[in-house]
Amino acid sequence: MKIVKKGQAGTMQSSDLMVTVEPADELVIDIQSTVKKQFEHLIRAKLEEVLARCGVTAGKIGISDRGALDYAIEARLEAALQRAGGE
């Protein structure tokens, strides 16, 4: 799947996250999280897993997380990618 335009999903509520994706030449992941210190590696691993499964190799992925669990990260990222994937 290719990111062809900006896409966004999620909220800024506690236990949720906001995902933004936009086209870029390479894959860049920017993680902002209230629990970055403790869980950045796990969040990144989850994001990379979903990106790999969707076949995304390039794009700017930004997340603003407030302690979301894995399934929320997965769902929000998938939704943002689908919105960014064109028709």
């Binding site: 966004q8 909220t11 800024m12 509520q13 506690s14 407030r66």
Partner: peptide, 15 residues
């Protein structure tokens, strides 16, 4: 949750 909800809406619109 009030502040988060408010800021979500403002942020979406700003984007």
């Amino acid at each position: 949750a009030a502040l988060g909800e408010l800021v979500t809406s403002l942020l979406n619109r700003a984007r």
